[in-house]
Design a protein around this nucleic acid. Structure first.
Lengths: 340, 340
DNA sequence: CCTAAAAATGTAAACGATTACATTATTGGT
DNA sequence: ACCAATAATGTAATCGTTTACATTTTTAGG
């Protein structure tokens, strides 16, 4: 039977309590707590003793108000459930924490309306800055008054909008994916893309088109599908729709691994084997990609680094409000595995 | 060329600004903003007009200090990358948001040390309460002074510790899984469990043991593996280790779908087919479970509801600090699909 | 009209830290 | 021993709200 410690250092202790107990002023306590120079060692010890004795913990609300920074970073992601975004969030969190920030996670569910709401968290000083992985914000960035708010775009960005960003060259990446399919002899290549609201979707579509153009292959519009979700089911449905056509493709490029995995499942459900009957290429290289059957050929994004960089850009922007922070492109890589 | 709106309602506006502009006192502004009764409609309108004109947004830091609540909930999860936890987080977030709270996400990486640190966020008033999905906290709960901190346990809990919890009956759930394997004729059943540091792991192990005991089947210790990570690779490695034994099992029960999916990949890598050569049962029913080949037989946990309930319990505890909040068990369900 | 009660608004003290600036101790050079 | 310079500490304003309490205005009954 664990008994409550007799000397329970109970809460309710404020900096004043500590100051009293240590026989110094609150200013001195504050100085000790923040590691300021110019405090006599003896005094410092007295203060620390009082701190320990009272079980005092700083009240960050008070500190935040006074210093007018929340030390919170807002991460707006369309869907935490997606492994790709999950990994980004980890990258963001790791850098944030290293710099004494915590992360406020907001799942926008790709709901255009909700993003606006979340942006208000900045205006209300709930967070110091935001990292936005969502399309709508970027889209309406110009129209909105949100341009002078401290945020950065991650993965979904428009170089024309004067907002710091980090991402990859989506056009080139998609082109590389399709080129690989072409190189392996495919000519009937379908594209399963996410909603055209996403800039990256439009860029990847361009990459797809350009790769085909290079070989003078005509685009078949019925092989270009846009789905409004990146989950497995969406991929499976799209694959079935594709195969239901009289003139079905021989390869499918899906703009996300989750979609691609759904595609493989969908193909299986209609009796098609990958890569024997149909080749599949994904995008992202989530950890799952190597675990499925067949292992997924995909375009790897440096997910962790994307998140980390986004956080760093934001912190940089916060530290130097005036300076313009550059846009950053990280490299992608085609990983050839079993599915194509 | 989008020009900056001429009437940019710039920041720097405080409640005093608004009060001045509306010709009322700050108290009145505050009352209007918080929707208190007893403000003359005409006054309310004046205030709202001033608010709109000035582009004023409340400063939540100040409000938080004054009301001494941060309106932040801490979610401590071992790994956001795991779809199971990701779904829980969504459940938590949705209920939190409904009640005007935001969620501070902390990925503990199952690092025992880090959890302690995160608990300090409560003491420093950074968050009002915490939802803990991690083992170590629960373990040391009694030893620590954290017992009177406002937190609840989710999925990983000890009924003996006087802390509100929500979870499932892990013992029964594991037993159900193994019983299914037994019912389909298997007698050589392996268990791939997570680290024994997790209470749920010990409970599920008990379920496994009891199910075998019911049929007087002896436990083969070399068929019980504990892995220290729930990711795919851990499952694959464990499966290979199992099959490398001279006396290999005919069925594998893995305590998480991610493990189970890794198991299937691992088996494939050594030339074993599921379910033909080996049956596999997972745990959780993540959305991926239906997408892989073969679809995964698993124990479904109501993930979303678990997260939602956890948040509700916590809010309840915050609202009524005195009252004891009950522990809640949610139902699980065996879903028989292709893998076993 | 007057007045008491009710309704609306205002005043000012918190909340708990940080930090200019003012004050007091300490040091070392003569 | 004294003084100036320097180091250490203290005082009090401040951040932007909320809210108890005081004050003023309005209402309605006579």
């Amino acid at each position: 039977m664990p008994e409550r410690s007799a000397s329970t250092p109970q809460n309710g202790a404020s900096i004043t309590t500590v100051a009293l107990q240590a026989g110094v002023s609150v200013a001195t306590v504050s100085r000790v707590l923040n590691g300021h120079a110019g405090v006599k060692p003896a005094t410092r010890d007295k203060v620390m003793a009082a701190v320990n004795a009272s079980g005092y913990r700083i009240n960050e609300m008070a500190r935040n108000l006074r210093t007018s920074e929340s030390r919170l970073l807002l991460a707006m992601v369309p869907d935490v459930g997606n492994p790709f975004y999950a990994e980004l969030v980890r990258g963001i969190g790791s850098v944030a924490r290293q710099h004494g920030y915590d992360v406020l996670l907001c799942d926008t569910g790709a709901d255009p309306g909700r993003e606006r709401t979340y942006f208000d968290l900045l205006r209300r000083k709930r967070a110091d800055g935001a990292i936005c992985l969502d399309p709508d914000t970027v889209q309406h960035a110009l129209a909105e008054e949100s341009l002078d708010l401290p945020w950065v775009a991650c993965c979904e960005f428009d170089p024309a909008v004067p907002v710091p960003y980090v991402g990859i060259d989506n056009h080139a990446a998609a082109r590389d994916a399709v080129r690989h399919l072409l190189a392996t002899g495919h000519r009937r290549i379908a594209l399963i893309n996410s909603d055209e609201g996403y800039l990256y979707a439009r860029q990847r579509q361009l990459g797809y088109v350009d790769a085909l153009r290079e070989l003078d292959i005509a685009i078949n519009p019925s092989w270009v599908l846009n789905v409004n979700s990146l989950d497995y089911a969406a991929g499976a449905d799209a694959a079935r729709a594709l195969m239901a056509q009289a003139d079905a493709p021989s390869a499918i490029f899906a703009v996300s691994d989750t979609l691609a995995i759904g595609v493989i499942a969908g193909l299986r459900s209609v009796g098609k084997r990958v890569p024997h009957d149909i080749a599949v290429v994904g995008f992202d290289d989530i950890s799952l990609a190597t675990q499925i059957d067949p292992p997924l050929t995909t375009i790897a994004q440096p997910m962790r680094a994307l998140g980390e960089t986004a956080a760093r850009l934001l912190l940089q922007r916060l530290a130097q409000p005036g300076h313009t922070v550059p846009g950053v492109l990280l490299p992608h890589q085609l990983l050839i595995r079993g599915s194509a």
